[in-house]
Write a protein that binds this DNA or RNA. Structure first.
Lengths: 106, 106
DNA sequence: AGTGCGTGCAACTTCAGAGTTGCACGAGCA
DNA sequence: TGCTCGTGCAACTCTGAAGTTGCACGCACT
């Protein structure tokens, strides 16, 4: 298996609220309080999600004066995408082999 | 945007037992009972996971005599991978634009 | 026909995590 | 120098998901 563990990334991407957060951060860097103002959850909930996302390597904290803004990191997503692509291709390759065998038999 | 629609797929991929199931199905098609014999959980638990995976489009039921075998579908995985790649590229593109602005100002 | 294996449905327990409220701390602005 | 705004930590509730046991149904071989 490749270096970084994918499981935390999947767990992080499984929650809908975290996708909303990521969607906002995809437009511009925002602080936890700023995100709380745009989403229907409290700042503390946002903070927990941001900690989880940072742990998964999907966002990065950036100090801006006295507040802490968060930045969306595309690298981890691309990394995960490539891993998924490889696994999916492997499955389809097995399927293609089975189909080929079935046609040869007939 | 098909962004938030990805959440169910990742919810399906977030569980470790489901990854074990997918790993087994990646080798060959198996029924719920056969999977239960290879994994340390009961058949009913397996059945629930299979229903979830089928709902997410990651697995497909195939009738084989009186039993129902399940097949891993790589298409959904590739589809998800491409969506992730696109989103990640979008984020990095914005970052690159910001960096360019900072360099022009200096 | 009868029987067994595989499947499906339902109730129950357990536990992680999503969200809330409340309060305390501390760095930045006027 | 105050004082405000943003952040961090802790305890609590509550919903949903994972897993179990138990039982009933049905198709498929003998």
């Amino acid at each position: 298996m490749s270096g970084p563990a994918l499981a935390p990334v999947f767990a992080a991407l499984a929650d809908d609220t975290r996708w909303q957060i990521l969607a906002e951060l995809g437009r511009c860097d925002l602080s936890a309080s700023a995100l709380a103002a745009r989403l229907p959850v409290t700042r503390q909930a946002i903070a927990k999600h941001l900690a989880l996302l940072a742990e998964a390597g999907l966002v990065e904290p950036v100090r801006a004066g006295r507040e802490i803004r968060y930045r969306a990191l595309g690298a981890r997503l691309s990394e995960t995408a490539r891993a998924l692509e490889a696994i999916g291709a492997e499955w389809d390759r097995r399927l293609a082999a089975i189909k080929r065998l079935a046609e040869e038999r007939s």
